[in-house]
Design a protein around this nucleic acid. Structure first.
Length: 825
DNA sequence: TGAGATCTATCAACT
DNA sequence: ATAGATCTCA
């Protein structure tokens, strides 16, 4: 039925069966989306509507029908997880290698572009990528050097400022600075840029911005990629920021009077209800702009949900209907109501965790759920600790995504810093990280002198050591010599050997062997070797780093001249060119070759890139049948048979910090919507009366989101136990909890014949109603802290406490028998 | 001057 | 709870 075998990239590829099963089982909307004629289109895809399936099937269909070659396809996602998922599905669908396609995250593809054209982008080929930690420490270093008042300009705030500018596509010169503070920030931004350029490092924002400018300013190169990528597919389009949208426009090509009427076909897939990244510059408005600027004629809504039972979906629909400014979409399912959504109230976070564990045991044992089909979601990473320890104690395998990830651990960053110095001695951030770690007698004073020397001579720290005299200078030179020796020693070695050598010779292993808490760290350092090993052997090796050689005769021949294209405008042509990067020795195994330029990148450089772009999971044992733990953000795009959402409490979910932002509550609600729609069969929501946070106990009121769910889809499984209900009527600025909940609680004792789940630890009895007359949401006045707002209340009589937010003085818990609070009207 | 001890601020999400 | 910053002693 389809012409096939047009894929020269897979000469041995076995012909696909002509009666393609590809399009079978698609519903009419999905089919329409998959088989859209070339052109721009927007697909509004609700949660669980088969979005990834549509995307991957379209790619497969384009290839199978000969409308596209692998090299003409660019598919971009936000997370590594989504990119991997897409690749995995495509490999399963297609009989040939999928590597010729550019499929990856925005940052991954930008990295690929910049590596391929590093000269045009004025970067060393082995440029290093700063993660958030590195970026912050680079900014701190800069501030110290230029005596920036870190009271007035906290480094973190500067980092947000810089990242924000880049997300908007603004260089320092583009920022309109009307007040002195902004002018100062712009000045620091400028200095920061110079520092990064000098050191040959780029941050996440720079990856995007630099590759955008590369395309914008280098006509030759832009045309090459515009011709090449005839089919551009964008996943999670609602999460694109301004710069990413502009980046896409550069690739789409053929702008005529502000309209992108022809050129490549851009298919944007998104869901405004799942926009959860406004905090980092995502612009839902890009969807409307896309429709206008690309003159989109084809809009398809995917509203049929194949994932969840209707009780779950009803909850999601009801919740999200409380948001305004929606494009309008309602999920429907052909499945029955399924089981009710269970809601549990725990007395403490530990009790919440142990309830989850009990419930998970039941699910696995009695109901035959696979552990990997059970997920525990939470709003913030700090919540995972309690759940982890409960799972650990119950000997249930689990896997945590996010949190302190593998490549972010201190010992790993130390090892990576040594490795980075091998690749690029001018990486001052890495230099400073390990110049005195393990301690080798180089103190703050010496480093200060070195930094002064480097600054006045305009060189990197590494180059400046020779200019420092005395004993301090000798020590410094000793350190640099050590790095140089390491670089010598590791020449021609495999990645594994390089890392092993560095870990041993740097003294890191020795240092941790002598440290009493060092065993875990040593284990992690060994794990780094393993990670490198699997990076080398793993399928898709270097995908993010650089393309493997591939047959691209279907594409416009890139040609060597691309690398000789004139230096991009917009960058200072007089900026000193950095040294040519180290080339891997000839014959080194697995040196990677850039398909577009023929240049090679050493396995070590590729691995370092991998480490920066994919922070890695923090649990080593992957692929096991393990319960999945992650933040709600990390869960987007995934689905599970059973989902637990813990910590549904005011201040946590919705998060108190989010409430400060404009539109913050709505984003929190979308976040809850995302969380709910992850569940296929069972959904559990829970909240806890108390929670350890920052080392102290906090008392939380249940989330307002509970009040926005349809009662008939819920089942409250908390035993009464005489506890919270007594003060519940006073806990709510949000209304109906008390009356409704007490009725629910009473009518729901004993479901599903599992009385043991009710065995929650006893709650301290409370006798009387609180008499202070305070309610959450009231404004109060405190003699010392001034005016504040009551966030939550707890306890009665002498034990009564109120959580009050005092703005400048922060949020405090106050014992009402002691603190004098007056109600402000 | 450097190393260890103590104090303090932080703690939302992702690349 | 934890890391980072500051302080004190050798």
């Amino acid at each position: 039925m389809f012409p096939i075998d047009l894929l020269d990239a897979a000469p041995e590829g076995s012909p696909h069966p002509s009666s393609s099963p590809l399009l079978a089982h698609l519903n009419p909307e999905q089919l329409a989306a998959v088989t859209l004629p070339a052109g721009h289109a927007l697909i509004l895809a609700g949660a669980g509507s088969g979005k990834t399936r549509v995307l991957t099937t379209r790619i497969a269909w384009l290839l199978q029908t000969g409308q596209a070659t692998p090299g003409s396809i660019l598919a971009v996602t936000f997370t590594n997880k989504a990119a991997k998922e897409m690749l995995a599905r495509l490999s399963a669908m297609l009989p040939y290698n999928v590597r010729g396609m550019w499929i990856g995250t925005f940052h991954g593809l930008c990295n690929r572009l910049l590596r391929a054209h590093h000269q045009a982008a004025r970067l060393p080929q082995a440029f290093q990528i700063l993660d958030t930690q590195d970026q912050l420490s680079a900014i701190k270093r800069l501030c110290k050097q230029f005596n920036v008042d870190d009271e007035r300009f906290p480094p973190k705030q500067l980092m947000y400022f810089i990242a924000g500018c880049k997300e908007e596509g603004m260089r320092p010169g583009d920022v309109v600075a009307s007040d002195p503070d902004t002018r100062k920030k712009v000045e620091i931004y400028q200095l920061y840029e110079e520092q990064c350029q000098r050191e040959g490092v780029v941050d996440f924002g720079e990856l995007m911005l630099r590759s955008f400018e590369l395309l914008r300013d280098d006509e030759h190169l832009r045309h090459h990629y515009q011709r090449r990528f005839q089919h551009i597919l964008v996943d999670e389009f609602q999460d694109t920021n301004k710069l990413q949208y502009q980046w896409l426009k550069q690739l789409a090509g053929n702008e005529v009077g502000g309209r992108y009427v022809s050129g490549s076909s851009v298919i944007a897939v998104g869901d405004d209800d799942q926009s959860i990244y406004a905090f980092r510059g995502a612009r839902v408005g890009n969807m409307a702009d896309f429709i206008r600027e690309f003159d989109v004629r084809q809009q398809i809504k995917l509203e049929q949900n194949y994932r969840s039972y209707s009780n779950i979906l009803d909850c999601a629909n009801a919740l999200i209907s409380h948001n305004s400014n929606r494009l309008g979409k309602n999920l429907r399912t052909a499945q029955g109501p399924g089981e009710p959504v269970r809601i549990y109230e725990a007395p403490s976070d530990l009790a919440e965790a142990s309830w989850m564990v009990d419930e998970i045991k039941q699910l696995v044992k009695n109901d035959g759920y696979a552990r990997q089909e059970i997920a525990v979601l939470y709003r913030s990473n700090a919540q995972s600790r309690a759940i982890e320890s409960a799972l650990f104690n119950a000997a249930i395998p689990y896997r945590v995504y996010g949190g302190l990830r593998f490549f972010e651990r201190a010992e790993i960053k130390h090892a990576l810093a040594y490795l980075r110095l091998l690749e690029n001695p001018h990486d001052d951030t890495s230099f400073l990280r390990v110049v005195n770690f393990p301690p080798r007698g180089i103190g703050a004073r010496t480093i200060e002198v070195l930094q002064d020397t480097a600054r006045s001579s305009g060189t990197s720290l590494s180059d400046a050591v020779t200019a420092v005299g005395g004993a301090a200078g000798t020590k410094l030179q000793g350190f640099v010599a050590k790095i140089d020796v390491l670089r010598e020693q590791t020449q021609g070695k495999t990645l594994r050997e390089i890392i092993e050598t560095v870990e041993e010779e740097s003294g890191l292993l020795e240092h941790y062997r002598n440290e009493k808490e060092g065993a875990d760290r040593i284990e992690n350092l060994q794990e780094l070797v393993t990670a490198a090993e699997s990076f080398v052997t793993q399928e898709g090796f270097g995908r993010d780093a650089i393309a493997l050689p591939l047959d691209e005769q279907q594409n416009a021949r890139p040609g060597q001249d691309l690398t000789q294209s004139p230096a991009s405008q917009g960058l200072d042509p007089d900026a000193p060119l950095l040294d040519e990067p180290l080339r891997p020795p000839a014959g080194t195994a697995a040196a990677m070759v850039n398909a577009d330029t023929g240049e090679t990148l050493s396995p070590l450089a590729a691995f370092l890139t991998h480490a920066a772009l994919e922070a890695g999971d923090n649990q080593a044992q992957a692929g096991q049948d393990a319960v999945q733990l992650m933040t709600v953000h990390a869960s987007k795009g995934l689905e599970f048979d059973a989902v637990f959402i813990g910590g549904m409490e005011e201040g946590l979910f919705p998060h108190e910090n989010a409430m400060m932002d404009r539109g913050g509550l709505e984003e929190e609600r979308r976040l809850a919507y995302v969380a709910i729609t992850r569940a296929r069969k069972r959904l559990y929501l829970s909240h806890s009366q108390t929670r350890m946070l920052h080392g102290q106990t906090r008392y939380n009121v249940k989330s307002r989101f509970f009040d926005e769910l349809p009662e008939e889809a819920l089942k409250w499984i908390t035993p009464r136990q005489g506890g919270f209900g007594t003060f519940a009527p006073h806990s709510g600025a949000y209304g109906a909890y008390g009356s409704r909940a007490s009725g629910q609680l009473g009518s729901n004792s004993g479901w599903a014949g599992k009385p043991d789940v009710f065995a929650s630890p006893p709650v301290p009895p409370r006798k009387a109603e609180p008499s202070h007359g305070l309610k959450a949401g009231m404004n109060v006045f405190h003699n010392k802290f001034g005016e504040g707002k009551v966030l939550a209340l707890e306890g009665t009589g002498d034990d009564a406490r109120a959580q009050v937010s005092f703005g400048r003085h922060g949020t405090k818990w106050l014992a009402l028998s002691i603190a004098k609070l007056t109600i402000v009207e």
